[in-house]
């Protein structure tokens, strides 16, 4: 069983020149964890997800490890957070894309995708070997559904 067998083909995506605001609307409307970001040729650039969006709103040093024990000391002003969002929503998403995100090929065995789900706790883009063109997305739900109730399972299995 490979990733191609259970992936969602032709997933929704944003282009790297689209704005953070457009990507944010897409993520919120569809409650996506991650949205693939592609270049003009459809090659995967990386992922931009809900955590990447929220991380833009807090000082970066607060989300890069265990450097700050808390942010409780900061003033509790959600209008400031909104102002911050407004100040960056017109920036291209390429500035905030996670380029280190894991990716798999269509022929990658499912078990490798499961390992990546366990390590990264997120959905994974599937790309065409060689061209890196985005061909699908695979989620932990896809994997779990397939394993718990496989379509071609023997009765009573």
């Amino acid at each position: 069983m490979s990733c191609a067998d259970i992936m969602t083909p032709n997933p929704r995506y944003v282009r790297e020149d689209d704005t953070i605001g457009e990507a944010a609307r897409e993520i919120i409307e569809h409650t996506y964890i991650n949205l693939p970001v592609v270049d003009a040729e459809g090659r995967l650039v990386g992922l931009f997800g809900i955590y990447d969006l929220l991380a833009l709103l807090v000082p970066r040093v607060a989300v890069i490890g265990n450097l700050l024990p808390n942010l409780r000391f900061m003033s509790d002003d959600d209008s400031e957070l909104h102002r911050k969002y407004l100040s960056l929503k017109d920036n291209p998403v390429r500035r905030a894309v996670n380029r280190e995100a894991a990716r798999v090929y269509a022929d990658t065995p499912l078990i490798e995708a499961i390992r990546l789900f366990c390590l990264n706790h997120t959905t994974i883009p599937v790309v065409e070997r060689g061209s890196d063109r985005l061909v699908g997305m695979i989620s932990y739900w896809d994997a779990a559904r397939h394993i718990v109730a496989p379509k071609n399972a023997a009765p009573g299995g």
């Binding site: 024990p69 808390n70 409780r72 000391f73 900061m74 003033s75 002003d77 400031e80």
Partner: peptide, 13 residues
């Protein structure tokens, strides 16, 4: 003003 409004006591764990 935002820095002045920070609650330093809350930084204490």
């Amino acid at each position: 003003q935002r820095v002045m409004a920070m609650n330093a006591d809350s930084a204490i764990e």
